[in-house]
Design a protein around this nucleic acid. Sequence first.
DNA 1: GGAATCTCTAGTAGAGTGGTAGAGATTGAC
DNA 2: GTCAATCTCTACCACTCTACTAGAGATTCC
Lengths: 143, 143
Amino acid sequence: MDVSVKGEYALRAVFELSCQGTPDPVKIARIAESQRIPQKFLELILAQLKQGGYLGSRRGADGGYFLARPADQITVGDILRQIEGTMQPSRRPFAKEPADSPFPELWDRVERALSCVVDRTTFADLVERWRQKRSQGVLNWQI
Amino acid sequence: MDVSVKGEYALRAVFELSCQGTPDPVKIARIAESQRIPQKFLELILAQLKQGGYLGSRRGADGGYFLARPADQITVGDILRQIEGTMQPSRRPFAKEPADSPFPELWDRVERALSCVVDRTTFADLVERWRQKRSQGVLNWQI
DNA sequence: GGAATCTCTAGTAGAGTGGTAGAGATTGAC
DNA sequence: GTCAATCTCTACCACTCTACTAGAGATTCC
């Protein structure tokens, strides 16, 4: 019931871009450093997110990646689905189950519950909550 | 974001025992057959569920496994946690994250949403829903 | 005693995860 | 036009984990 490291890296990268506010491209190297993600691995992840239409990029000096649309129009669920492939708890046509079983309905419920969180949380929400927490509470200027 | 095959097998086995109604032990071989689970693999799973206190067993002729408590006192979440270890979407102290990040809170929300489904669904619920569906709708007597 | 059952310890093939390596294509600055 | 900085593409790989399998041992009931 867990998210892969790759999925977490993807979320952190998009979060980093969402924090920028500006549409200027950010270098892979910078994202890798500030989010502590292995750079070559991050390259693959960002390419995949670009393929999904969530990011854009520019090559050459002053190149980098940027959000392809505003942060309030990208959800956590979008990114997770793009990286992990799906969100269904059970996507197995194999593990032969008796045709008549109570579990498909259960998995539907689980998926809807998950969806309620991840498809309603945008990166704009994440940035906002994070800024609020920073301004009120524990002061920690690591980023 | 998925449940392992082992976890599914565990759920199906407990469901099978819950359907019995009677406290008589059911043989591994019978559960394996009716739920189409590889028998030797199922042995390991049932032993683990017994360790967790959800099942009891008896050896010898007329032996088998049975629920250690009533089906309305065992939840889907109990079984999943016993088999999968946890339900947190992210349990990684490695993947070094900046100390100050919006994600732990997100994972908490996800876990609570999941919990709402799996910790409130007992095996008695599953059996009841399944019986209702059978009596009303698609008639299918595979089990 | 013996048959039927659970129990315990090992092992294992294959897929998947989490990377790394390096050459190539584009861009911007000079 | 050249050079440096950057993204892009293909390939590879070590390690872990998943989903099993094998087989001998311990109990129980008749």
